[in-house]
Simulated assay, not measured.
Amino acid sequence: MSVFLAVALAHFLALLSPGPDFLMVVRSAARHPVRVALGVPAGIAIANGVYIALCLLGVATVLSQSAGLLMIVRIAGGLFLLWLGVMALRARRSDYAFLMQAAAAEPIERASSFWREAVIGFASGILNPKNLLFYLSLFSLVLTPEVAIAFKVGLGLWMVLVVFAWDALIVLVLSHGAVRMWFNRTVFYIDKFTGLVLGAIGAKIVHGAATHS
């Protein structure tokens, strides 16, 4: 349970930090009706599911056969989370200008569909290499022979559902222009908080891997 809570918390906090996927969700919510814009969260969730499956199937098999390689992946994963935290803490207000631009008043475009937006969301998620690195870093905590495969699969399914639920919530909330502008004004502080927590989790992973090496 402690491992699940640690991984689930790091995963959710990472969702709060704005990035390419978040931008796609915001733009779709600003341009399309909710029923169409929900295609982007669906596509992003599927792309995340692909990366999670790769981590569980291919990487888990290789790592289970090499304690040294597992330690390296754990340290690399922890350093990546630590890097994400540092980047969030170093970000300036001007780095969030793209959110304000995406949230600017734009005409509703109806020349799209749920499936077209889903393809856009999938492309955004699958073409972002940081997603694979992020899941590798998270699953470094559970990619061991001692952890049951059912737990790993359940954790993966939980992450996919959380990705979709969070992005879908963003679409629903940001469909209201006033709420969207308020969120964009506060995202700077939200990102600072997530940076602190992700950095702390990354440092803990690195310290634990180095201690047991």
Results as ranks from 00 to 15, higher is better:
residue 2 S to P: 08
residue 2 S to T: 15
residue 3 V to E: 09
residue 3 V to L: 15
residue 5 L to Q: 04
residue 7 V to N: 05
residue 9 L to H: 12
residue 10 A to I: 05
residue 10 A to N: 03
residue 11 H to P: 11
residue 12 F to Y: 09
residue 13 L to W: 07
residue 13 L to A: 06
residue 17 S to P: 07
residue 18 P to C: 05
residue 20 P to G: 01
residue 23 L to R: 08
residue 26 V to M: 12
residue 27 R to T: 09
residue 27 R to F: 06
residue 30 A to P: 04
residue 30 A to G: 04
residue 31 R to Y: 01
residue 32 H to F: 02
residue 32 H to C: 05
residue 32 H to G: 02
residue 32 H to N: 08
residue 33 P to K: 13
residue 37 A to V: 14
residue 37 A to K: 01
residue 41 P to V: 06
residue 42 A to L: 11
residue 44 I to M: 04
residue 47 A to P: 02
residue 48 N to V: 13
residue 49 G to S: 01
residue 49 G to H: 00
residue 52 I to H: 02
residue 56 L to V: 04
residue 56 L to T: 09
residue 56 L to A: 08
residue 57 L to Y: 08
residue 58 G to F: 00
residue 61 T to N: 13
residue 62 V to P: 07
residue 63 L to P: 07
residue 63 L to V: 08
residue 66 S to V: 03
residue 66 S to N: 05
residue 68 G to I: 05
residue 69 L to R: 02
residue 69 L to Q: 01
residue 70 L to W: 10
residue 73 V to Q: 00
residue 74 R to F: 04
residue 74 R to Q: 09
residue 75 I to C: 05
residue 82 L to Y: 02
residue 86 V to P: 00
residue 89 L to E: 13
residue 89 L to N: 12
residue 92 R to L: 15
residue 93 R to A: 15
residue 95 D to E: 10
residue 95 D to A: 01
residue 96 Y to Q: 14
residue 97 A to D: 12
residue 99 L to C: 07
residue 100 M to R: 15
residue 101 Q to W: 12
residue 102 A to S: 10
residue 103 A to M: 07
residue 103 A to N: 14
residue 104 A to W: 11
residue 107 P to A: 15
residue 111 A to V: 08
residue 115 W to K: 13
residue 117 E to K: 01
residue 119 V to Y: 14
residue 120 I to W: 12
residue 122 F to Q: 04
residue 123 A to D: 06
residue 123 A to Q: 04
residue 126 I to H: 03
residue 131 N to C: 11
residue 132 L to C: 07
residue 133 L to C: 06
residue 136 L to S: 02
residue 136 L to M: 04
residue 137 S to L: 03
residue 138 L to A: 00
residue 139 F to W: 01
residue 144 T to C: 09
residue 146 E to D: 07
residue 149 I to Q: 14
residue 149 I to G: 13
residue 150 A to F: 12
residue 150 A to P: 06
residue 151 F to P: 01
residue 152 K to D: 00
residue 154 G to M: 01
residue 154 G to Q: 04
residue 155 L to T: 07
residue 158 W to S: 09
residue 159 M to L: 08
residue 161 L to H: 13
residue 161 L to T: 11
residue 162 V to Y: 00
residue 164 F to A: 07
residue 165 A to L: 12
residue 165 A to E: 07
residue 165 A to Q: 10
residue 166 W to T: 00
residue 166 W to N: 08
residue 167 D to F: 02
residue 171 V to Y: 02
residue 172 L to F: 09
residue 175 S to W: 10
residue 176 H to A: 12
residue 178 A to C: 14
residue 180 R to H: 10
residue 180 R to N: 06
residue 184 N to R: 07
residue 185 R to D: 11
residue 186 T to F: 14
residue 186 T to Q: 11
residue 187 V to S: 03
residue 188 F to T: 10
residue 188 F to P: 13
residue 190 I to H: 03
residue 191 D to L: 09
residue 193 F to Y: 11
residue 193 F to P: 05
residue 194 T to M: 03
residue 194 T to W: 01
residue 195 G to A: 11
residue 199 G to L: 05
residue 203 A to R: 13
residue 207 H to L: 15
residue 207 H to V: 15
residue 207 H to S: 14
residue 208 G to I: 05
residue 211 T to N: 13
residue 211 T to H: 12
residue 212 H to V: 15
